[in-house]
Every structure is written in structure tokens, then in C-alpha cells.
């Protein structure tokens, strides 16, 4: 197990290096750049000054090596697109907690409600309740979140002033910290949660339905186990494996935010930088986020594999060398 985790961790580091190298080369070779924003463009002198200022005058390989050396120390350089050109790590540390908070609430809502809905639907297969849940889940999947957001804004009013004192429900736990919950969170979380909730509900329904029809349940009932024991020990446990495969990878998406949700609701989070840093050619920010997302996805798959083993003892994890 330890060897397996070490092997996967080494592979993750390689993936991060490869992803960063590919993005670095692509980013520096597509047309346009961080200083192609003005009406008239820069004079050659001014452009040379800018490139020198941000270290873009150095050869590509040297810049990449500098980036890797800096990244190991969590120094990703300075943003070219955020007010005051702050260190990228400062921007991430300032904005990610907001995104994380919205993401955690979204996960709780989407997974909590989705699991309950899916289980009920499976338990009452082909009943009106099942039909209603299936219809709702389908609607959640097919309706794009920009439609949902627009309707919510029309109905409940425009949102701005994120975190204003009059909108806080549960204040910060530490002085100067972020509010725990505010009215501002409701619409973004509902908008953000609908699609994953629908997905969770549909997959849960399918997995639980399959488990409910399995032969071992008949045996379990014959042994005199209670319904609750059967559900927890047998149905849920067996239904978990396909659910883990499909649903856990949703989590990195939700915890790294969404451009659309953050822009529409004016959330000062990290999610929008995944798109705007590329559009604005903020190279240091883009590179930092690539590493972040590569790390997050690699970690998620590692955790998923470990959870397989916990849920299903038949699964044995081995590193390639051990095999």
C-alpha cells in the first residue's frame, strides 16, 4: 500500500511536470501576449522594457527552468493582470478560500440531496416519486447553468456586494476571517449544485437499483437482517463502487470554481482565473493554476483508488513495480 502510494505520488509529480511543460510551450507560442491589449500597441522600446520587466526576454528553456525552481518554493512569480501585480501565490491564497467555501456548500447540497433522491427513486422504482425525481434530474442535467442563473437573478434580484455585513447569516469564526454563511451564497450554490446533484441522483438510482436486485440481498434477508442493515452493509456498500468512479472526479471541478458562476454572481473567487488568466495572457497565474489543477486531479484519482479498496476488499492496490 505504502509503495503503491509512493509510486502514484511520483507519477503525479511527473504528470505535473509534463502538463506544465506542455502548457508553457503552447502558451508562449500562440499569437498574442500579455502586452497586446492597447489600441496602438507598444513602441519597440516600450515592449522591450515590458518584456525585460517580466522576464519575457529570456530564452524559453531558461524561463521554464526558472518557473520550476520557483514553483518548488511556491513562488510562481507576479501576476501581470491583477491590481498591483501581486505575487500569484498571494492571489491564490486570497481567492481560493472563497471558491472553496462555495464549493464545499455545493458538494454538501449536490451530494447530500442527490444521494437521498437517487436512493428514494431506486427504492420506489417506476413509482410517481421515481418519475418525478428522474424528471428533475434530467432537467438539472440538460439546463445549462447560465439559464438557471438568469432565471434565479430575475426572480430573486441582482446580487452584488459579496460578503457585505447586512447579508451575513453566520459571521466569521476568527476576527477578520471570512463569513461562514451569507445570503450571497444561496443563489450561486443552488445554480452550481443543480447539475452535479442531478448526476449524483441518476447514478445513485442506477447503482442502488442494481444492488437491490442482487442475489445476495435475498440471502441477507433470509438471514433475518433488518432492512436498515441490509441497506447500509450491502446495498450502499456495493452501490458505492460505480458511484466513486463517476462522482468523486466532480469534486476537483467544484472546489476550483467556475468562471460563469463567479462572474455572474460577483464572487471574488479563484475560479474565474482559470479562464481569464489565459484570455489576459497572465502567464504566471496560468502556470500556477495548471499545477494546482493537475495536482488536484491526480490526488482525487489516488484517493478514489484507495477508497475502492476500503469499500470493496476484493480490490488490491499494487504499484506497477510490485506487479
Amino acid at each position: 500500500m505504502t509503495r503503491y502510494i509512493l509510486g502514484r505520488t511520483a507519477a503525479l509529480i511527473f504528470v505535473m511536470l509534463a502538463a506544465s511543460a506542455i502548457v508553457f510551450v503552447l502558451m508562449n507560442n500562440i499569437p498574442g501576449g500579455p502586452f497586446s491589449l492597447g489600441e496602438r500597441g507598444y513602441s519597440p522600446d516600450a515592449l522591450a522594457n515590458l518584456e525585460r520587466k517580466y522576464g519575457l526576454d529570456k530564452p524559453l528553456l531558461e524561463r521554464y527552468v526558472n518557473f520550476v525552481v520557483g514553483a518548488v518554493q511556491f513562488d510562481f512569480g507576479y501576476s501581470t493582470a491583477v491590481a498591483g501585480s501581486p505575487p500569484v501565490i498571494d492571489v491564490i491564497l486570497r481567492t481560493w478560500p472563497v471558491t472553496l467555501q462555495v464549493g464545499v456548500y455545493t458538494i454538501v447540497l449536490a451530494f447530500g440531496l442527490g444521494l437521498v433522491m437517487g436512493t428514494f427513486a431506486a427504492y420506489h422504482r417506476n413509482s410517481p416519486l421515481d418519475n418525478f425525481i428522474t424528471f428533475t434530474a434530467t432537467l438539472g442535467i440538460v439546463l445549462p447553468n447560465f439559464i438557471i442563473a438568469t432565471f434565479l437573478l430575475f426572480i430573486f434580484g441582482f446580487q452584488n456586494g459579496w460578503g457585505e455585513p447586512n447579508k451575513i447569516i453566520i459571521g466569521p469564526l476568527t476576527p477578520g476571517g471570512m463569513p461562514v454563511l451569507g445570503w450571497d451564497y444561496f443563489l450561486p450554490v443552488i445554480t452550481y449544485a443543480l447539475a452535479p446533484m442531478a448526476l449524483v441522483a441518476r447514478y445513485t438510482r442506477a447503482a442502488v437499483s442494481e444492488a437491490l436486485g442482487a442475489d445476495y440481498l435475498r440471502t441477507a434477508r433470509a438471514k433475518g437482517l433488518t432492512d436498515r442493515t441490509i441497506m447500509v452493509r450491502h446495498v450502499f456498500r456495493n452501490a458505492m463502487i460505480p458511484l466513486l468512479t463517476v462522482l468523486l472526479p466532480q469534486i476537483p471541478n467544484l472546489l476550483t470554481g467556475s468562471l460563469f458562476i463567479e462572474v455572474v454572481y460577483g464572487i471574488p473567487g479563484l475560479g474565474k482565473f482559470f479562464v481569464t488568466s489565459i484570455l489576459n495572457r497572465d502567464y504566471p497565474m496560468t502556470m500556477a493554476l495548471i499545477l494546482l489543477i493537475a495536482f488536484f486531479w491526480g490526488l482525487t484519482y489516488l484517493i478514489t483508488d484507495i477508497l475502492y479498496m476500503v469499500v470493496d476488499p476484493r480490490v488490491r492496490l499494487t504499484s506497477s513495480r510490485a506487479r
Binding site: P34, G38, A81, N280
Partner: peptide, 18 residues
């Protein structure tokens, strides 16, 4: 929310004003 912004003084930047 999506613009590149670095200062609110034109003497520092014109194209990236807050």
C-alpha cells in the same frame, strides 16, 4: 470581473485601469 486590472491611476496604466 474578467478584465486585466492593475491600478486606478492613468499614470500607472491606461489599458489596465481598475
Amino acid at each position: 470581473s474578467t478584465r486585466t486590472e492593475t491600478s486606478f491611476m492613468s499614470a500607472v496604466t491606461v489599458y489596465q485601469r481598475i
